[in-house]
């Protein structure tokens, strides 16, 4: 089970989401992607997208206004 971190701090929509989608494509089922973000919109649209596709998502607030989105590829 591989784990990858994607640094999207300081990036505005839709860049974090597009990068996440790209990164997920290159990963195998079961792999985990951690996306660091501080953009409040990405904090909503990345989990929304990942859940709609069927991945498992956890949002962790590492600091006020800064999140790690942990996505496990399910299919």
């Amino acid at each position: 089970m591989a784990e990858k971190t994607l640094d999207c701090l300081g990036e505005a929509c839709p860049v974090p989401l597009v990068k996440t989608q790209k990164a997920m494509e290159s990963m195998a089922v079961g792999d985990v992607l951690i996306v660091n973000i501080d953009h409040s919109c990405a904090m909503k649209n990345i989990p929304d997208w990942a859940r709609s596709v069927g991945h498992v998502v956890e949002i962790e607030e590492v600091a006020e206004g800064e999140w790690n989105i942990i996505i496990q590829k399910m299919k």
Partner: peptide, 9 residues
């Protein structure tokens, strides 16, 4: 409590 200056990347 989420204000932060977000610099250009």
């Amino acid at each position: 409590a989420q204000f932060k200056i977000k610099k250009l990347k």
